[in-house]
Amino acid sequence: MGWVGWIGNRTLKGIGECGRVSELLLDTVRWTLRRPVRFHLFVQQCLHVGVYSIPVVLITGAFTGMVLALQTASAFRLFGAESLVASVVSLSMARELGPVLTGLMVAGRVGSAMAAELGTMRVTEQIDALHTLATNPVQYLVVPRVWAGMIMLPCLVIFSDIIGIFGGRVVAVGVLGTSPATYFKRSVQYLDAADVGLGLLKAALFGLTLALVGCYQGYTVRGGAREVGFAVNRAVVVSIALILVLNYLVTAFFF
């Protein structure tokens, strides 16, 4: 049967792919612990992953907070509970929307760039050249990117959370007429460290995922320009899908 074979084939390919990504992750851990430590490469990647992503993260966070305030206000008004808008905004931003939206934006911005850069390096033999210059390509290319992803994403999420809550405040105070003092009080009233911690844990996981997937797709390119394009495409689609799946799994685990 053709379609049974097709499903079997795809499944085997998928399992093989998971195996190879895990192998790259193990290699990354192994080569992190070995000398030499190239701290400047890590700093460089932190700039790309973190600092240069700040504008897009701020815009996403601000408008998400604002629309959340508007949408919840229209529902809460029915029960006369407008003052709880602030709590909904802060909880949603910290637990879900901050990490997920930041993860998605950075996957699109940085994961794709990693796949394109490593893929081009692969097809132009630059990765082979690293090997011949006694440099492990995983240590030189993948290790700094994965660590930058894992450390910078939580930092970005802190920005996103704060600007999201601030965006909600702009709408609540400006449009809905809540007093600034009430908004602030309600924002922090139901928000505890565990909520923020969960969001940051998710962010670190998403950062690891998008950097690892981006690097893997680029690192394993075979062929030329067309295949680099496919790799970038896969890097974005796979890491976004994985972020959403992992988000559910982590949430369910701590529920």
């Binding site: 390096m121 132009t124 033999e125 630059q126 082979d128 050249a129 011949t132 006694a134 440099t135 492990n136």
Partner: peptide, 23 residues
């Protein structure tokens, strides 16, 4: 092993077809 291979690579130079310079 990989480390042994890198040790060998320090005694070897390779010129690639298209240069393979780090751009």
């Amino acid at each position: 092993s990989e480390p042994a291979l890198y040790e060998l690579m320090r005694r070897v130079g390779v010129l690639f077809q298209f240069g393979a310079l780090f751009d």
